[in-house]
């Protein structure tokens, strides 16, 4: 029984990560070569834009902050521990992370409800969209569960998850850091690798083609013919 669990841990935490990352790299390149114009999130804002706002905005602000937090804790774990050495600072960090995570969850749920209930949107929703919704849902719910029931994750991520992830980077996986973690933590890690592996098959590829140069390009002058109010009546 125990050797079976040991074997499973090896497969899930030492093999799956590499399978996921290789799938990500190879399929991303292959898809870009074969179907370049499929690199899009296929926006449905044109079909419905009121509910869309309440899904899109909180989800993206939430998930970008949360992912950035994970990356920072991976890159500078010791500095995170130093920050957390004052309980008040630890609470501020944990609470901010929880707020952004809840925003992400509510945003995702708003998006799912919109896709299910609006007939126009439902037609343009593919099976891969539903799979990605499901994976993201599992990821966010397990993350929030871990944050609430196994605090303080920002500290123990630095001592346990970061060394595990670095051991993967160094091609010498050390699963001892995660093998004895609670099931929800394990689910969060495994599901993250599934998301990475599934990434290139889905609309998530839009992450790779965000028009980032918009952030630093020179300002463009937009001239309106007449006052903006009048354009709605038939100007543009």
């Amino acid at each position: 029984m125990d050797s079976w669990a040991h074997y499973l841990d090896q497969v899930l935490f030492a093999v799956l990560p590499y399978v996921a990352v290789f799938t990500l790299i190879l399929v991303t390149i292959q898809r870009y070569r074969a179907q370049r114009f499929s690199y899009s999130s296929l926006s449905s804002q044109f079909l419905e834009n009121r509910q869309h706002f309440w899904g899109l905005v909180p989800f993206h602000y939430g998930i970008l902050t949360i992912i950035a937090g994970h990356v920072v804790a991976f890159l500078i774990p010791r500095e995170i521990l130093a920050w957390n050495s004052h309980p008040l600072r630890l609470y501020i960090l944990e609470l901010s992370a929880l707020v952004f995570a809840l925003m992400t969850l509510i945003g995702l749920l708003a998006g799912m409800v919109r896709r299910w209930t609006n007939p126009k949107i439902r037609i343009v929703t593919s099976a891969s969209d539903w799979i990605i919704y499901l994976l993201l849902f599992v990821q966010i719910v397990s993350g929030i569960y871990v944050a609430v029931f196994y605090p303080w994750g920002s500290s123990w991520f630095s001592t346990s998850a970061a060394p595990y992830l670095w051991s993967l980077v160094k091609l010498n996986p050390d699963v001892s850091f995660v093998a004895s973690m609670p099931h929800m933590v394990k689910l969060h890690i495994i599901n993250a690798f599934l998301l990475i592996g599934f990434f290139p098959f889905t609309r998530l590829v839009h992450i790779l083609v965000i028009p980032n140069p918009y952030l630093w390009r020179k300002p463009q002058v937009v001239r309106w013919y007449g006052k903006p109010k009048e354009t709605a009546g038939g100007g543009a």
Partner: peptide, 12 residues
């Protein structure tokens, strides 16, 4: 902790 998180989210 969870309630504070919910309040923060509503504020957001």
């Amino acid at each position: 902790f969870f309630l504070l998180g919910l309040a923060g989210t509503a504020g957001g």
